[in-house]
Computed example of a mutant assay.
Amino acid sequence: MIDDQPGFIFFQTSILHKRRYAHTQLSINILQSLSLALSSMGTNPFPIAPDAMFLKLDMSTKNLLIQNFESEWGLTDERLCYFDDVLIGLASDTSTDGKQIYISLLPKLDSTRQYPWPDRAMFILGMTKLLSTSKDWLLICERDADQNKLKHINGLEETLIALNTALAFSAGEPIHCPTFSASSQI
């Protein structure tokens, strides 16, 4: 739905937050009306990052755009990844056959760079749409890359809960960052 004011798009969504405190686990469903201003882009909404947070994705994913970042000095070798025109991360590698790409997600990016940072809500909406519409993906989040076995999450709903919890941690909320892997159901 588009408002009469240019530059503003309004979204209505349900975001499921799962918070863990010390020995207590609390799950809260919060219906939020999110007003996203496209002109408010400017700073990294995630000042803290887990040691590893990446997405392996099919290069042919619809609405995935990869382009070099243009700094004030010209084009760089940094390949930014966008989904539906929302910055989701930085291409870090491709598979040997060139069919899949590894993307370091937004919280892992250098906060000092002048990237076209989306706000937190826009990034969450973009990732939710990406994961729910893509056929072949693998999402990894490790708070500490300590070589411990990752808990594999099954199902999109559980994946989105874990991702939102990791993003809340990355936004500076005082919660535990989950360590997990999740993949699409092929």
Results as ranks from 00 to 15, higher is better:
L65N: 10
L65R: 13
I66R: 11
Q67T: 14
Q67A: 13
N68L: 09
N68C: 10
N68I: 04
F69A: 02
F69I: 01
E70Q: 10
E70S: 11
E70V: 14
E70A: 10
S71H: 06
S71E: 06
E72W: 04
E72F: 01
W73A: 09
W73S: 11
G74K: 03
L75H: 02
T76S: 15
T76E: 13
T76H: 06
T76Y: 05
T76L: 02
D77L: 05
D77Y: 04
D77M: 05
D77E: 15
E78A: 08
R79H: 14
L80K: 10
C81Q: 02
C81R: 00
F83C: 05
F83W: 10
F83S: 03
F83A: 04
D84P: 00
D84N: 13
D85N: 14
V86Q: 07
V86I: 15
V86L: 08
L87I: 01
L87S: 01
L87Q: 07
I88H: 04
G89S: 00
L90Q: 12
A91R: 14
A91Y: 00
A91F: 00
S92R: 02
S92V: 05
S92P: 07
D93T: 09
T94D: 03
T94R: 05
T94S: 09
T94G: 05
T94N: 07
S95M: 04
S95W: 04
S95R: 07
S95I: 07
T96L: 12
T96S: 13
D97Q: 09
D97E: 08
D97N: 14
G98K: 09
G98F: 01
K99N: 09
K99Q: 14
Q100Y: 12
Q100H: 13
Q100N: 12
Q100K: 14
I101Q: 12
I101G: 05
I101S: 04
I101A: 12
Y102E: 09
Y102W: 12
Y102N: 08
Y102Q: 09
Y102G: 00
Y102T: 15
I103E: 08
S104E: 15
S104K: 15
L105N: 04
L105R: 02
L105I: 02
L106W: 02
P107S: 12
P107V: 11
K108P: 02
K108I: 02
K108V: 00
K108F: 00
D110S: 13
D110T: 08
S111M: 09
T112N: 15
R113L: 07
R113T: 03
Q114R: 14
Y115C: 03
Y115R: 06
Y115I: 07
P116Y: 00
P116N: 02
P116V: 00
W117S: 12
W117D: 12
P118T: 11
P118L: 11
P118Q: 10
D119M: 07
R120G: 06
A121K: 11
A121W: 06
A121R: 07
M122K: 12
M122F: 09
F123C: 11
F123P: 02
I124K: 13
I124R: 06
I124T: 13
L125M: 10
L125Y: 09
L125K: 04
L125D: 13
G126M: 03
G126E: 01
